[in-house]
Amino acid sequence: MQSEMLTALTQTLPDLARNDSLSGGSLLIGYESAQEVGRFAARAGWSVHVPGHPDEVRAAVRKAAAGTGQAYIHVSRHSNAEPRAAADGFEMVREGRAGVVLAVGATLDPVLRATAGLDLAVLYATTVRPFDAVGLRTAVLAADHADVVLAEPYPRGTCAHQVAETLVHVPHRLLALGDEDGLDGEHIARALRDFVR
């Protein structure tokens, strides 16, 4: 059975071609190609998008196709239950003081389940390049502890370097979780219990 995420993608691309909405930029899309995210994230000049809901897939493809830059969109078979409003940076989904969890794409729902009842801020990202350094730094400085948990639906630590650069002058701890860690609510909750002070 085809996932809703893939269906959203296959419905959006022909519409763009029919309406002549493709610009002079480069648009590459990977489905369940987690290893490719790091490759494109490391390339200068590329934007990397990781939508977490079918509506977000449609919006990301349309926006990237209308631009003139180079964009890579990672589409997973997993999705969040509800779409979030399109944001240029990281969106604060839940406020908290004990640390910050950055949930990328379809990790948001399991992160919200795992952090229920915990005093943790949850940021949501559908774009990881460019990296929203201001959004992350603001959330971390507002917390009582500079503890950051990074939940990414691709190899662990893909954005760890950006977190370290963002917080270079802020003593902090980082826990990076990736698809190899089993990103369901139970696994994330167990990792959080071991990490959060």
Rank of each mutant, 00 (worst) to 15 (best):
S79C: 02
S79R: 15
E82M: 09
P83K: 14
P83Y: 04
R84P: 02
A86W: 07
A87C: 03
A87E: 14
D88R: 13
G89R: 08
G89E: 03
M92A: 13
M92D: 04
V93Y: 10
R94W: 00
R94P: 01
E95S: 13
G96P: 02
R97W: 02
R97V: 03
A98W: 09
G99P: 02
G99D: 12
G99K: 07
V100I: 14
V101A: 10
L102H: 03
L102W: 03
V104N: 10
V104R: 00
T107A: 15
D109W: 12
D109T: 00
P110C: 11
P110D: 07
P110L: 06
V111P: 01
V111A: 09
V111Q: 08
V111T: 15
L112A: 08
R113Y: 00
R113P: 00
A116G: 01
G117T: 12
D119P: 00
L123N: 11
L123A: 11
Y124H: 14
A125K: 08
T126C: 07
R129E: 08
F131W: 04
D132V: 10
G135A: 01
R137N: 08
T138F: 01
A139T: 10
V140F: 04
L141P: 03
A142Q: 13
A143V: 02
D144C: 01
H145G: 06
H145E: 00
D147Y: 11
D147W: 00
V148E: 11
E152F: 13
P153N: 03
P155G: 06
P155K: 04
P155L: 06
R156N: 06
G157V: 03
C159D: 04
H161P: 04
A164E: 15
E165G: 15
L167P: 07
V168S: 12
H169Y: 06
H169K: 15
H169R: 15
P171F: 02
P171E: 08
H172E: 09
H172G: 13
H172D: 13
R173W: 04
R173P: 02
R173S: 14
L175K: 10
G178W: 05
D179E: 15
D179I: 11
E180W: 10
E180R: 12
D181W: 13
D181M: 11
L183H: 09
D184A: 09
D184S: 03
G185I: 03
G185M: 06
I188M: 01
I188S: 04
A189Y: 07
R190P: 01
R190M: 11
